[in-house]
Amino acid sequence: MNFDDRTLRLIQIALDSLWPMLKAGLAFTVPVAVISFSLGLIVGLLTALARISNIKPLVIIAKFYVWIIRGTPLLVQLFIIFYGLAKVNIILDPLPAAIIGFTMNVGAYSSEIIRAAVLSIPKGQWEAAASIGMTNIQALKRIVLPQAARVSIPPLFNSFISLVKDTSLAASITLTEMFQVAQRITAATYEPLLLYVEVALIYLIFCTVLNAIQGKMEKKLDRFVAR
C-alpha cells in the first residue's frame, strides 16, 4: 500500500540519518561548545575582574569589548571572523573561526554574570577577609569567588545551553556540525520536517544532559547555603 511505503521510507531516512547527525554532533557540536564555553569562562572572568578593578584603562577595554559583542549579532560576528578577516589575509579554518567567535561571545555575556555574582557577595565578606590580613587577591580567590560561583551557576548554564544551540550557526561558515549534516541530508531526501525535527531532538537531548549536570552542581555547592 502507498501509505506503508511512505512510512517505511521515512523510518529508513530517520534511521540512516541518525548516525551521521549524531557523529557530527559528537565530533563538532559538543567539542566546539565545551571548548568555547571553557575558554569563554576564562575570558569572562578576566573581563569581570577588569570591570571591577577600578583601573581605568582596564575598565574601558572591558566595557568596550562587552559593548561590541552584545550589540552585534553572533551570526554577523562569525561571518566577519571567517569571511571578513580572509580579506586582510587572516585566513582561518571553519573550526578555529567558530571557536574564536563563540568564545568571544560567551566571554562577553558571562563577564556580566560573573561581575554581578561577585558584586552580590556582601561587603562584610571582603572586610572579614581583610581583617584577618588577606590581600584583595587572596580574598577574591578564597572567599568571594567560591561564593560567587554558586550564585552564577544557573545563569552560566543558561549561557552554556544557549551556546550548544548557537553552534548551529557555524553551519553557515561551512563547519560540518550537526545542523549542516541535517541540511545536507534534507537536500538529498527532501524530507525537511522529519530531519529538522530529528536534529532538534538531538539538540534537546544534549541540553537535557546539561540540565542534569546543572542540578548536580547546584546540589553539591548547596551544602553551605541556608535552606
Binding site: A128, A130, S131, Q147, F224
Partner: peptide
C-alpha cells in the same frame, strides 16, 4: 591588620566553610 583581630556586628563568617575551616583560613592563607 596582622596585629589586630576584628569581630563584627554581623559576624561575617565565611558561609562556604565549616566552623573549623573558618578559623583555619587566616593561619593557612596569611
Amino acid at each position: 591588620r596582622k596585629k589586630t583581630g576584628m569581630v563584627f556586628q554581623g559576624f561575617h563568617l565565611f558561609p562556604h566553610k565549616t566552623a573549623v575551616e573558618n578559623i583555619m583560613e587566616g593561619p593557612i592563607t596569611v
